[in-house]
Amino acid sequence: MRLRYILFVGFILCSGFLYAQLKEAQLEIEILFGDENLELGRNYYVDELADSVEFESIKFYISNLEIQSNSTWQEIGKLKHKLVDLEDSTSLSMKVRGYSSIQKLRFNLGIDSITNVSGAFGGDLDPTKGMYWSWQSGYINTKIEGKSKVFKTRNNYFQYHLGGYSGVFKSCQKVTLLSNKQEKLVLQLDIKEFFVNLNPTELSSVMSPSLEAVRLSTLLSRMFKLKE
């Protein structure tokens, strides 16, 4: 009887200790154009292109977000698949429950292959979100659309719909970032650096799984960093 009592008290104490370790951290996403927050519909002059650019839509999936603390990875279950949409400010901030000393953050930019072949899902993965191809199965991991006179296309439009889940067209990218912050993480994505590096004058649209989609996805994944 006494042993049971000691075990019970020990269990309660351990649970309390572990609970104290858990904290609700805030993860915010900032989409930048150079040093400033990117605004849809605003003109940005780009020296490298000697012209301006305007963005109409920026959306991408973040999936399987995990936080590393004390050398173990903690899956953030509620954030299995998150659609980030610059037009929807609520999608740019999220609460994550993790251990207090976050050392690393890792996630997929896009949707993994297994989810891609597992049928219909709801929430952020519902095909009504406009991030699923209809003529050929697969999620669009990233959509970046806008216009610039550097493109000799109809209305100077450019459209990058990046996806592909199998073989050489697998475009989902793993991103791992080191953290020195604990309670508020700010994930930044610099679209200017992406846009300048992709050599836009030669590429106005990517609309299907392709090697170009993989190249652009890889490039975009390198533009993420955690705010110092």
Binding site: N116, V117, S118, G119, A120, P127, Y132, S134, W135, Q136, S137, G138
Partner: peptide, 16 residues
């Protein structure tokens, strides 16, 4: 074989 799952098949004719 462009469609990889029966659940997603209807999207193709609906939007074509």
């Amino acid at each position: 074989g462009a469609i990889n799952h029966l659940d997603m098949q209807a999207l193709a004719p609906i939007s074509d």
